[in-house]
Design a binder for these strands. Structure first.
Length: 418
RNA sequence: GCCCCCAUCGACUAGCGGCCUAGGUCGCCACCCUUUCAAGGUGGUCGCGCGGGUUCGAAUCCCGCUGGGGGCACCA
């Protein structure tokens, strides 16, 4: 994986990294990270740390310390001198250019695209070393691939046209080229290049929205690859076990947020309650208010089946943590039920979901209201919303005193409104 | 303009000449379940870009077209 430190890691870039990682893990090889920082003018401060953090969060661990392309400036210059001496390169206005062949074709067997060939007359004499001494990407990259004994270069297919240049450089050096696999790029929902207007495209943004790393990994892996025609939900281990570079699709794939949401929900629901709570606590730690951990853990089971992203927690279960202000219009006509519920629940002891349910169902029956009709005003009074976790469990977790207080407040509110 | 890549439901894909009146998943629609929302269950909707070949037979092979994408820097 070879990011340039020019900004946050994009889902397209991380998908390419994922294919590299899956391939390496599947084959028992090494996954390497190289920072391509030869263009010092475009470097963004903190981008390296940011990118590495995104990779780590997703679970893509690397096997050797990341290397920095510019660190090999001296070796690159030396290689360039050798090429000049051999007549394979020449000086041009202070820079050093590579002499590309004029006839024939340069081609290779691409693992995902198949045979690709470029007419040599199409390939310009490449600048290897700039006039200020810094190597260019197309020179440093193939050199490092050779030096680091990179066996497989798996990168975005926007690099296809660079490949014949790099191939010629490697051959001029008398070295053996790596195997190339050009994977298609990730597109936006409209089939166009993925960009900001399609929504969140940075790995950190997705993380901020409460996506779960293994789910995102599962989703990204399915963008351009499938183990068969049936399997969709896979754990990290299953992905590693089943991944095959040869099965990567040559065509581009569109990023579908709806499917990501669904898959995220699938992964979250499958989590053991304890682990789900751990993840939720971890997510909330970096988001907004100081969430009471004990309360978060007790609320976790009530939301696990209900939300598909951790980011939905504050809106969905925030009422456990702070005061609510029900919209009076949502309580319309509910005054009698709310008052009755307050009175009846005041008698309930112990205040458990089970006993609460028994009492409220009896109440609904007595008032000749369908459960739906009877419970909705109570829900709104207590949670401030028409949508919430299970009512009885919510009341229990909220506690008797607080529940009664909210019911009283709502009753008063409706009384004043009418 | 030149070069390269790509092309199955709205989306992700299975398919690698007959098992395909094209399968799975998301989405969407309907119904069931139901205290809201979800989840779950059942059923349904929807596709091989076009035109030529090759072949007894083509989603699968070949050619052309069209449409998308990428590249043509002393960027990566």
């Amino acid at each position: 994986m070879a990011p340039s430190p020019t900004g946050a890691l994009h889902v397209g870039g991380v998908r390419t990294a994922l294919f590299n990682w899956l391939f390496a893990r599947h084959r028992g090889g090494e996954f390497r990270v190289r920072i391509e920082n030869t263009d010092t003018s475009r470097e963004v401060h903190g981008a390296v740390e940011h990118a590495l953090e995104s990779l780590a969060w997703l679970g893509l661990d690397w096997d050797a310390p990341p290397t920095f392309q510019l660190d090999r400036q001296a070796e690159c210059a030396e290689a360039a001198r050798r090429l000049v001496a051999a007549g394979a390169a020449y000086e041009d206005e202070g820079a050093i250019r590579f002499r590309m062949p004029d006839e024939g074709v340069t081609g290779w067997e691409d693992v995902v695209k198949g045979r690709i060939e470029f007419p040599n007359e199409q390939i310009e004499d490449l600048v290897l070393v700039r006039s200020d001494g810094r190597p260019t990407y197309n020179f440093a990259s193939p050199l490092e691939d050779v030096w680091d004994e990179i066996t497989h270069v798996i990168r975005g297919d926007d690099h296809i046209s660079n490949t014949p240049k790099q191939l010629n450089v490697i051959r001029a050096l008398g070295a053996e080229p790596p195997v190339y696999a050009h994977v298609p790029n990730v597109l936006g929902t409209d089939g166009k290049k993925l960009s900001k207007r399609h929504g969140a495209t940075g790995v950190d943004e997705l993380r901020d929205q409460g996506y779960y790393a293994p789910a995102l990994m599962n989703f990204l892996a399915l963008l351009g690859w499938a183990p068969d025609g049936e399997t969709t939900v896979m754990s990290r281990d299953e992905l590693v076990e089943r991944f095959q570079l040869e099965r990567v699709i040559p065509g581009g794939a569109a990023f579908d947020y709806q499917k990501l949401d669904w898959l995220n929900g699938v992964h979250l629901r499958a989590l053991p309650a304890e682990e789900y709570a751990d993840e939720l606590v971890r997510f909330l730690a970096g988001h907004g208010e100081a969430w009471d951990e004990d309360l978060v853990r007790r609320a976790a089971p009530l939301v696990q089946e209900k939300i598909e992203r951790f980011g939905q927690f504050p809106a969905f279960a925030g009422f456990f943590f702070h005061e609510v202000e029900p919209d009076p219009s949502l309580l319309d006509g509910g005054a009698p039920v709310i008052a009755a519920a307050r009175d009846e629940l005041g008698q309930v002891d112990p205040f458990t979901a089970e006993s609460i349910e028994t009492v409220l169902r009896a109440l609904a029956e007595r008032l000749e209201l369908s459960p739906r009709k009877a419970f909705q005003p109570i829900r709104v009074a207590v949670t401030g919303s028409k949508v919430s976790p299970g009512l009885f469990e919510s009341l229990e977790l909220l506690g008797k005193a607080e529940s009664l207080r909210r019911l009283s407040a709502a009753a008063a509110l409706v009384g004043e409104a009418t």
